[in-house]
Write a protein that binds this DNA or RNA. Structure first.
Lengths: 189, 189
DNA sequence: CAAAAAGATTGACAATAGTCAATAAATCAT
DNA sequence: ATGATTTATTGACTATTGTCAATCTTTTTG
């Protein structure tokens, strides 16, 4: 099994050699180029992605070409265009890798296989889901209670890597503000 | 078991008579008055609430007394101050019942009991969690991509009960806007 | 390495939304 | 029911943020 995935699982789940092999067989390695599109909006997101290296960006585009970043996934984390993946409906979001990336890809069917076959896998998955849900609740909180400056400061505190690694444009649309506003926040503060 | 809870579970989980009794014993009925506070911010949310009648409001207050509604839970749905409940940390949010309500209350320990004892319970719980997570992702989307008018229109389409049943003030802070702005949106539109 | 492309900054202006205050309407509790 | 309290609406003004455009900087790629 890929060491990064092994580390991700850590002591949350003890796998027998057979089960470890099963997990290993379900996750397929994929390498992407900078800005490569993995899921096009309108198509169904059929995979979960574990990021070994690089990052993924789940983003929305409107008719005028404006983009908004719904979600960012860095090294050691899993994600996808979740509503599409779960509901098996065409995704309103696209997924791209802003950096050249190394991914481990898990299909929906293989996720179900692991959930059903490996005792404890569903509990681990569920606990991860709870944490992701909490993160999204906290993002909602920041959006409904704070102005753009406060949101930027929080992001700086909690996920400075986003600000360091990604272009201003993406940071801005992750925060739900224009890139000009972000630029002004950075100079003023 | 309470018929509303039975309906909530529906065909998602077939319970043996013993397990049905176990579920029934874990959920305690609680009646609340209008605007009663169930969880005070700063305390730990130790329960999950199933709303039989009425509704619950999970909300934030700042130092100036401004309120923001993080989450609303209507009949037939479950919820709590989720980050506090899961992380067992003091809640930044409070919970109140804006209407007199009938609730079924499940403690953290009893939730774990059901998760561990009843085969299939965790799967049902996990599927519910996935849907709640999806709803929160969609709320983030509306907050980062739409202006207040568009958000109001979406809310009208997707959850008109919120607008019909709850005071303007709560609708406004659920949308992340001031109540004056909401009032103007309604008259203009 | 150089040309081209993409991203970042800044200014001027417009639009959206917030605040404060006064009044009107609706709702609650006795 | 009615007085009291809360909630909703409206106006005037302010503050924040967005848009468009120009310029400057950085990054990419042939």
């Amino acid at each position: 099994m890929h060491p990064a995935l092994k580390q991700h699982i850590g002591d949350k789940l003890i796998l027998s050699p057979e089960h470890e092999l099963l997990v290993d067989n379900c996750f397929k390695t994929r390498l992407t180029k900078r800005n490569e599109i993995l899921v096009e909006k309108g198509s169904i997101a059929r995979h979960l992605y574990f990021v070994v290296k690089g990052c993924l960006r789940v983003f929305l585009t409107d008719d005028d070409g404006n983009e908004s970043t719904r979600f960012l996934i860095f090294e050691g984390r899993m994600g996808t265009a979740f509503p599409s993946f779960i509901l098996k409906e065409p995704s309103v979001a696209s997924i791209q890798s802003p950096e050249p990336s190394e991914l481990l890809v898990l299909s929906y069917a293989d996720r179900d296989l692991l959930l059903n076959e490996i005792p404890g896998f569903e509990t681990m998955y569920r606990l991860g889901l709870e944490l992701d849900y909490i993160a999204s609740i906290q993002r909602i909180e920041s959006l409904i209670t704070m102005d753009s400056k406060a949101r930027y400061n929080i992001l700086m505190q909690t996920q400075p890597e986003i600000i360091k690694r990604l272009p201003n444009k993406i940071v801005a649309d992750y925060l739900g503000i224009s890139q000009e506003t972000l630029s002004r926040l950075k100079s003023k503060k």
